[in-house]
Design a protein around this nucleic acid. Structure first.
Length: 261
DNA sequence: AGGCAGGTGGCCA
DNA sequence: TGGCCACCTGCC
């Protein structure tokens, strides 16, 4: 899940150790088979690590709410990736990274996020830099983003930075809204369509009912659920109705299985 | 060498 | 509403 397109600030070091940056935290973790999280805080707070990895949530219960009993396709994917979770990432950098993600491959998204952090972010030690925040991005301007190879996304990201640096209450307001309204609110931001909005809601707002549909999910839903030729919005609707309150977790199982396929 | 990638917004009927 | 197409950049 650290390399599954949820977050773009993790890299695999030697010995199965992953090193990652989120918020003001620089951490190393080792994910074991027993699903125990072993971690080392290089910079930051332990409590934030636990929250980030969703340790306060009852994943057995959440997984059990999925329709695996009646859905052999889903059951297969779940068995293939035991221990898969949804990360609970900070809102701002989640929105930023998914604005960067459109029509890009994971390796390129990682490169862009790294570049922006290196140029504008706070030094966390060991050559790692935090996500800089909207203020710094708004101040840096569109050209700097283009230098970080964000291309046409630069204009959107810069506009969003200007909007959100002037609206400190945005995240709080979003949290008070129901899922459909929260999605609509996010989609009012430039560069945020249905897919980016659902990724942000799922990975950065704890809305497990969000069901982001990208080309991988379109493919896997066509293959496993016979939805070939379906309109993307229809696939989203199918996913939410069929998988229910934890549709986003189902999405991750399907996504992981399709990428491995 | 040209099409396309983990989309979105704008324009057209 | 539904279908195209440009938009940056890098990889196949």
């Amino acid at each position: 899940m650290l390399d599954g397109g949820q977050s773009f600030r993790w890299s695999l070091k030697s010995g199965g150790i992953w090193e990652g940056v989120f918020g003001k935290n620089l951490v190393q973790v080792k994910l074991s088979e027993s699903e125990n999280l072993r971690y080392r805080v290089l910079t930051g707070e332990s409590i934030e690590i636990l929250e980030y990895f969703g340790q306060s949530l009852d994943w057995d219960m959440i997984s059990d709410a999925l329709p695996w009993r009646s859905d052999p396709q889903l059951r297969t994917c779940m068995q293939e990736f035991p221990g898969l979770r949804i990360l609970q990432q900070p809102f701002g950098e989640t929105l930023f990274s998914f604005l960067c993600s459109t029509a890009k491959q994971i390796s390129q998204i990682k490169q862009c996020c790294l570049e922006v952090a290196n140029r504008l972010g706070e030094d966390l030690g060991c050559g790692n830099y935090a996500w800089p925040g909207w203020d710094a991005i708004a101040e840096a301007g569109e050209d700097l983003l283009r230098e970080c190879r964000l291309g046409y996304r630069s204009r959107y990201i810069w506009k969003v930075a200007k909007i959100l640096s002037k609206d400190q209450e945005f995240e709080l307001r979003l949290a008070s809204e129901g899922y459909p309204q929260a999605k609509a609110t996010l989609m009012q931001l430039p560069g945020v369509g249905a897919k980016v909005a659902d990724c942000v809601l799922l990975f950065g707002c704890g809305r497990l009912e969000a069901f982001p549909v990208d080309t991988w999910i379109t493919k896997v839903m066509a293959r496993r659920y016979n939805l070939g030729g379906w309109d993307t919005a229809k696939v989203v609707q199918f996913g939410q109705v069929h998988f229910g309150s934890a549709a986003g977790l189902a999405q991750q199982f399907l996504f992981a299985s399709e990428r491995a396929h």
